[in-house]
Design a protein around this nucleic acid. Structure first.
Lengths: 372, 372
DNA sequence: CATTGGCACTCTATGACCTAGAGTGCTAAC
DNA sequence: GTTAGCACTCTAGGTCATAGAGTGCCAATG
């Protein structure tokens, strides 16, 4: 199991030095406090209800009286790890409590070999990329009974395999770009003058020879170079080709935001008590539809390897109150392709979710490897 | 305003002959009953609460005592047009009541000229079809504060403008199909043997000459014809071309269901009291995600012109309990393209919704006309 | 001096009970 | 055929009492 890494902005650690008032500095007490916190979080994830000191003594395995537990809980509350919904309820974890739990207390249950095998079968190489993305998101949602989300790989990471043109009408040419073996992109170019079929074919040949196998970033760089060369040194064909390629690889205006994601199982979230507030639920679903914020959030996970977790409002978005996100980026041999993950109530079984996300990311990345 | 037509299976009319027990046969009473039903439905759409006899006397404009109204209401209840949630609440309309209301009692408020103008601006010709579809669905949802839905035009209605091939690797050829001026389809063909670029170009030329301008249905028919001709009579080129075209226009297996729709504003439905039952809401949203049933329902609207209305479970789907659908098909000069509409609680202001759907359908159809 | 038993206190959830109000159905009078 | 009157029903909402869970604090303890 890969080590879980905390998102950059919230990489908090247990405040052993920053003891708020009294005993938490004592290593023994601290150990006990951790055990209790662990028991509390686990139980809350299971039952969804506040837990009192009496129950906790039983559950934690520690040999302590309820009174002692009460003292410790008071400390934990002061430190911000737990809170009481009202005076005479038990305690429940805060976001900070969950954070400490997933960073330091969590024991992960790895998937069984046959479960991985199941996943592997359903994420088979050689299937169309779009279908794979869909499958992955459905698998995530199906296995976890939460919402699954997978970002669609960015276009410009793929390498161009082939390039062709098709004259449409005067001054309009359809450019076809085959990326990554299977993926096809089309773009209609308005040209300054007519091009004959033969001309287009020559241009295509030239560009294929020049740029075949490179990825779009590289091609852009090469084009920039070519621009700065003296036109005199080029054949007419070359400069024509460069001009066309320029139009082709310069992203049209509004289209720079081609990021998108696929989500499945959102409806699973409707059954959770913590989201039964319909207004909140509505706002969450609106965020899903809006996509921009979610994309932004997911993009933040592109930088770090391994499984990452956003707990509640840590993400910075209000709608994520009570909601957590477990993600991992997925990558093929060509590099990072995107991010996938699971969205659910903060009270989710992390020990099960994390390996699912982890393995799915790896298998999806593998399945998207360019064929040889 | 176009006349609203009832869906085929529910084209009920007022049972003037089938009077259940007593006075409904009397034309005067019938008239009054209708007026009362109208007042009841209108008020319920506005207020969302059961209405009693006293209120109804005031609201209906009729000069009757509450006691008389009570009698009439009892008749209407027996006939199935209204019902009482409990003994001492007022009455609310049943699905049947709504049906009669929209078929015979409804007065539609046409849109103001400037409202139409607004719509026209936002559904401008010359925009990309996908963007238009999105806009339409957003407009529907925005204007009505309900969920807007637009089916994506079926592929095979468009006419093929151009056709080209791009050799990928040995035995794999990318076929490019330009349909309807702007829309591009790609398909990878696994071929039995290698084809040279020149061969492919010849084939493309032949097929373009043969099939350019025809729509996909026509092409399939032509291909079927060609199949039955004696092979001996064809040049090798022709038979090659036919073979390739066969593969190209024969829809791959699982892909026959390429129907799809775009929905916007589903979240608007979450605020309605009649859907506050979270389990029901969940099922409805699952139906939206599932798509198949919804598509099937929308497809039923393809056959009839004008605005159509499905009220509650009339549609035959349980999830539509308490939910109605107002639709219209939209069409360009080339024929019917698809269906659009609004989904909302049965208690929706039909008088406003109907013209919105009607006008949007017309404008969208117009905007999707092939350019000249 | 950390731990614990004891105790007073607080807060919630639940159910019983009551009442006001809205609306009905029926009957008898008009 | 219509209506006034009346007994009846049902709900929404409020009050009240109670049981139960859990706390915080204090004084006792090993």
């Amino acid at each position: 199991m890969t080590r879980r890494t905390a998102p950059a902005r919230s990489g908090r650690s247990w405040p052993s030095a920053a003891s708020p008032k009294r005993k938490l500095a004592d290593p023994i007490l601290e150990e006990r406090a951790q055990q209790l916190l662990k028991a509390l979080v686990q139980r809350y994830i299971r039952e969804g209800q506040p837990t009192g000191s009496r129950t906790l003594t039983r559950e934690s395995g520690l040999n302590l009286s309820p009174a002692t537990v009460r003292n410790i809980m008071a400390d934990l509350e002061e430190a911000g790890y737990v809170r009481a919904p009202h005076t005479s309820a038990g305690r429940i974890p805060t976001d900070l409590g969950y954070r400490f739990f997933v960073d330091s207390l969590l024991t992960v249950n790895p998937l069984r070999e046959w479960e991985i095998e199941q996943l592997r079968i359903r994420l088979d190489r050689g299937t169309n990329a779009d279908v794979l993305i869909d499958s992955a998101s459905n698998l995530l949602s199906g296995l976890t009974q939460l919402a699954g989300v997978v970002t669609i790989p960015r276009r410009h990471t793929g390498s161009v395999r082939q390039l062709g043109f098709l004259p449409l009408s005067e001054r309009r040419v359809l450019a076809i770009l085959v990326v990554n073996e299977h993926e096809v992109q089309n773009r209609v170019l308005q040209t300054g003058r007519d091009y004959s079929g033969a001309e287009l074919e020559h241009i295509a040949n030239y560009l294929n020879a020049e740029f075949g196998g490179k990825n779009i970033e590289q091609i852009r760089a090469a084009l920039l170079d070519a621009m700065h060369q003296d036109r005199k040194e080029m054949t007419e064909l070359m400069s024509l080709a460069i001009e066309v390629a320029q139009r082709l690889f310069t992203r049209p205006e509004g289209e720079d935001e081609d990021d998108d994601y696929v989500m499945a199982g959102e409806t699973n979230l409707m059954t959770f008590a913590e989201l039964s507030d319909i207004e909140k639920l509505k706002q969450l679903f609106e965020a899903f539809n809006h996509k921009r914020d979610i994309i932004h959030l997911l993009d933040r996970c592109l930088t770090a390897d391994g499984v990452q977790i956003f707990i509640g409002q840590e993400s910075g978005y209000e709608v994520f109150d009570g909601v957590s996100l477990v993600t991992s980026r997925y990558q093929s041999d060509d590099g990072v392709l995107g991010v996938l993950g699971v969205i659910g109530p903060t009270r989710m079984p992390y020990g099960r979710i994390i390996p699912i996300v982890d393995v799915t990311a790896k298998l999806l990345g593998h399945a998207l490897n360019p064929h040889h």
